[in-house]
Nucleic acid binder design. Sequence first.
DNA 1: GACGGTCGTGAAAGCGCTCTCACGACCGAT
DNA 2: ATCGGTCGTGAGAGCGCTTTCACGACCGTC
Lengths: 341, 341
Amino acid sequence: MTTLAGRGSSPTLDEVAQLAGVSRATVSRVVNGSPKVRPEARRAVEEAVARLRYVPNPAARSLVTRRTDTIALVLSESNTQVFSDPFFARVVRELSAALADTEMNLVLLAARGEREQEKVARYVRQGHVDGVILMSLHSQDTLPAVLAEAQVPLVLSGRPLDGRSVCYVDADNAGGARDATEHLLAGGRRRIATVSGPQDMIAGIDRHAGYRAALEGAGIGPDPALVAAGDFTEAGGARAMAALLEQAPDLDAVFVASDAMAVGALRTLREAGRSVPGDVAVVGFDDAAAAATSDPPLTTVAQPLDEMTRHMTDLLLRQVEGDEEVQARVCPTRLVVRASA
Amino acid sequence: MTTLAGRGSSPTLDEVAQLAGVSRATVSRVVNGSPKVRPEARRAVEEAVARLRYVPNPAARSLVTRRTDTIALVLSESNTQVFSDPFFARVVRELSAALADTEMNLVLLAARGEREQEKVARYVRQGHVDGVILMSLHSQDTLPAVLAEAQVPLVLSGRPLDGRSVCYVDADNAGGARDATEHLLAGGRRRIATVSGPQDMIAGIDRHAGYRAALEGAGIGPDPALVAAGDFTEAGGARAMAALLEQAPDLDAVFVASDAMAVGALRTLREAGRSVPGDVAVVGFDDAAAAATSDPPLTTVAQPLDEMTRHMTDLLLRQVEGDEEVQARVCPTRLVVRASA
DNA sequence: GACGGTCGTGAAAGCGCTCTCACGACCGAT
DNA sequence: ATCGGTCGTGAGAGCGCTTTCACGACCGTC
């Protein structure tokens, strides 16, 4: 009776067993909630566990179970700013809520730059986690392929460019963009411009495709003067909007591929003396917090983020349980009509 | 020669040893970079490792080494929005940069709400990580104490209320606030108000204390009408500023305890027709990105975030190596003078 | 040519846990 | 009384790795 848990000297199953007067096996059963234990023995073990402040060693455990009971949310993005994306925060929130009453733990892994990506890949390949939810924004990102090859349960957040045989969940970006653009058409707009997202991101590509599809559906051909690329930031949106006003002064509406950019675009329009929605109707994308508080409040496309996250969790846990089926889920978006269009 | 790494069947040390024609011990030595291996043998092992795509099993390894080679950055905050804090993003960036050429991995753990805190505590106590950097914003948060008691190497980001015997790194919040306020005094202001941060956060408390200290130093007594509490958000800052204008219409300066709130305050002042810095001088805190782009650009207090993060990493790794010494570091801030004061 | 020293290596003992298997105790049915 | 069955339990075999220890091989030295 000397050492009281100095650092590094935690009690083992054996010690608990000895104190409780049973075998290791029985302690293990109690700890893991097996029903096949006499109540009496169970109580003795529980008491010993409490007395010794016993905590099972996960390394030893997972050495035999081949499970770690943790999954990783990895964010593959050189731009750390993406952390600031409320999108990301909501996913984290929903994810840990979904895991709250599971045995599963959640860890976040940031993979900016090549070296960190390699480190993350190694971490995953070593079997530190039972599964991965991967948010990869850029289409040329190699991490998705690397992880897919690592044979670890994997769900992608966002459609991969090459989407065969990998499980993913995404919003219907193209459909949402089409709805948004059709809403502008329905409002009688004809010179509909777009501030698109970066064309190396799937979301940017798909939203742009939806915009084009809507115009095409209305018999309107593409006009390069009505397209400016942004970078999903507010400043970028402002710049792109300025370029559009230059290129096509006669535009009467603009579909902006993200709310952050839309807020920038609104500022540019205000500064240029164009009224919204009077002179120019504006629709954004994301239904970000800023959309509701902007001036005027932004009509935008909402993604069912919580539903998407639940699906991701669901698909991942199912894979962890051994389900081999590869599924993808594309979730419908919803147009939120406010004052800007 | 049948199975090629189906899920769950990774090659073991033994197999590598067999293929290389050496013993497990030698393979282990090669893998861990021991110098005591003949170059010839080393080459054989390396080849076998490559052929088999051997990856060491970290569970087995840490079962014997008692190390996990990963540290956790835990964010204890019910408000997930804090993720969006660029502060946080910078810490993550700097931290993983510091760890990049180490063996150490970095995982982020989010602990909102009580249940998640418990999960995180359990995770840490189980020995999943070698050390923890803990960002805990609220003074009544129990996680710091829980982790401190868990005997795991720990560094706090931000001064704890009760700071004995726990390692922490913080900016000199009080000193920075004092500098800011003295800058206002030096500019001839006398009716200096403050939008303080929440008084249940150390940063809020310390910054408020610095503000009071500066006034006191100038022989100016406290005036409750000149104080309004914000919540570190832009909207909160706007509200608090409105309250101040109500309570003390004659104010000629305001020290705002965060840039986010300062941006809101600027908006309120603009809407109230007060010119900045003509009628009212404004100083913020944090040197956030928004500070440089606000209208007018914000004079603010910059924290040496990168330096602070390096210190945290440093102190933590040293503890992991076995250093028992408990240290705290308070880093000096820097006043960044722009147009608002 | 015998001697103490390195040096590289392999055998083997665990690390703390799970889980199969065998075993005795006890049940009700025959 | 005898038997198949269930039930709770413990002994023990690993899981894949690191690390100590002992052991030859080989060196230069006297």
